[in-house]
Every structure is written in C-alpha cells, then in structure tokens.
Design a protein around this nucleic acid. Structure first.
Lengths: 143, 143
DNA sequence: GCTTGCTCCTATAGTCGCTGGAGGATGTAC
DNA sequence: GTACATCCTCCAGCGACTATAGGAGCAAGC
C-alpha cells in the first residue's frame, strides 16, 4: 500500500475530471506524479491545490497558456505580479465586450421571438430577420 | 466565359470566408453548385442569400444543426413556424444565462484587478483568488 | 503568344480543450 | 478467492472552422 492520493480522489477534491487530470499532465500543465508499483499515479495535497487553481482559472475563462503563465508566477512568489495583473485585465476587457455583444444579441432574439405571430413560415419574424441582415439594428460581433 | 458568381465574390457579398463556403458545402449545409469547364464553382444570388442567412444565424450563436433546421423551414414557407420559434426561444434562454454568468465573472475579475497592489506575487490578489476558491463569492458556471 | 499574378482547386492536418471508448491491469472488500 | 471499482494506455472524435502544400485556371498587359 503506497501513501499517495489516487487520481480519483484528486479529481473529486479539485473538481477536475479524471480524464482531464491526465490530459493536463499530457500537455505539461501538471507535472507527472510518481507511480505505485502497479503503475498508478499518486498525488499529494499540492497537486490538489494546483488543480483547483487551474479549474478556477478555467471557470474564469482563462486560456491554458495564460494559466501556464499564472502558475509559473505562483511558483515564484518574489516576482512582480504585473504579468498576472495584465492577464486579468485583458480578460476583463474581453468579458466586458462579450457581455455587450450578448446583450445586443438578447435584444435581437427578443425582437424575433416577440414578433413571431406563430403562423406560417412565410410571415415568420424569426426567419425574416435571419434572412435579411438589413432588419438587424445591432452590429454583432462573435457571440 | 461562364455566367455565374465565383466563390470569391460570393464570399465577399455574404461575409463568409471562401474556405468556410467550401466547408459548408462539404457538410451539406450549402448545395454543391455547378462548375465551370475548368472545375470552378459557380454560384447565383440565391446562394449569397443563403450564406448571409447562415452567417447571421452563426453570429446569433445558433449551432450548425439548428441552422440546418431553420434553412429547411425557410425552404417550405407554408409550414408552421413553431419550430423556428422554439429554436430562437431556446437560444434566448442560453444567452440570458450566459450574460448572468459573465456578469458574475466580471465582478470577480474586477475584484481581482482592483485588489492587486502591483507588488510581489506573494501578496497578489489575482493569484490569491485563483488559488483559493473559498475567496470566490460567486458560483460560476461555464463562462 | 507569353508572362505575370491573382483566384481557384483538392486533400490533408491542425486548432482548442477536452471527452469517450476499447481492452486490459490493479487494488480492495468481503 | 472472487467480485467489483478503479485505474492504465492508446486512439478517435467533438464543433466549426483554419491553414498549408502543391497545383491548375484565367484575365490583362506587352
């Protein structure tokens, strides 16, 4: 019996799926852990922390490469946190833009749905708006 | 000289990239057009309309399969538009949920960025919040 | 007619961040 | 000892494109 946390426990504790933990190891986001005699991965508490960090970052919409940078920063606490700040700020700008875009989108979808008189397709506002971009007031970016 | 619109022109007119037009043909979203003697695709105005419809639908965040349904509906104008209405309503629900999620995200990112004193990583609010989910007030879903 | 240079063709592989399945080995509880 | 959960590797697939290689077509200028 080896003393180390099995991948399933780590998965449960961190909220990252087992397959995803292995995937993170594969892409070098998480160091390859030691193995049992039988070849099973054994983790420790640090790994759970790291995976929690990754999961939370992913939930905040950071890309893997950005998380890589953030993790490197975390490993070197004496360094300036300017990079972390820059990454977070850039993400904030993205999020604001996306909210604006989705709000415009919401308005257009509401217009479509409200205008639909539940009749035939030939007079359907939904189809009509999709077909004719001229009827669209808002300029939408990637939604 | 054949009379038909070249893929480049269709792309320009519809706002769909040339490679994407070919991709749509490949997945059966757009019918394969006739060709010139030299083997080049020749389109007509209907195709531009269809591609514009597709592009606009994609901008509104509809999935390819949903667009397939919407296009089929458009082709049979006598039919009830209930399906189109259902698809649009479902998308509206998704968009509203996403806006809510992103707004929570925005708040958390602002908290991170505002709290960062631009010092060392060891006292960086950004890193700290990412590391410790307990400091996160909001429960975030997919952002 | 010939060359320049743009547009177009096919086919295939890559992007991102996972997710799922096959087929088998290991560990544990009774 | 045996049933069962968990783990292993490898590889394929998702959605919606995007990019690259290596050509062929075609219009305009000289």
């Amino acid at each position: 019996m080896n003393h180390g946390i099995a991948i399933g426990k780590v998965s449960q504790a961190s909220g990252v799926k087992v397959t995803t933990v292995r995937f993170y190891e594969q892409i070098g986001l998480l160091a390859a852990p030691p193995r049992t005699d039988g070849g099973r991965r054994t983790y420790d508490l640090k790994d759970i922390e790291r995976l929690t960090f990754i999961r939370h970052s992913r939930e905040l919409g950071f890309e893997i490469d950005q998380i890589r940078t953030l993790l490197e920063l975390q490993d070197r606490p004496g360094q300036s946190c300017a990079d972390a700040d820059t990454i977070a700020k850039a993400r904030l700008v993205e999020v604001k833009a996306k909210i604006a875009s989705l709000t415009a989108l919401q308005a257009e979808l509401e217009r479509m749905v409200d205008g639909c008189s539940h009749g035939r397709v030939e007079s359907c506002r939904v189809i009509e708006i999709l077909a004719d971009h001229g009827k669209c007031k808002h300029h939408l970016h990637d939604a």
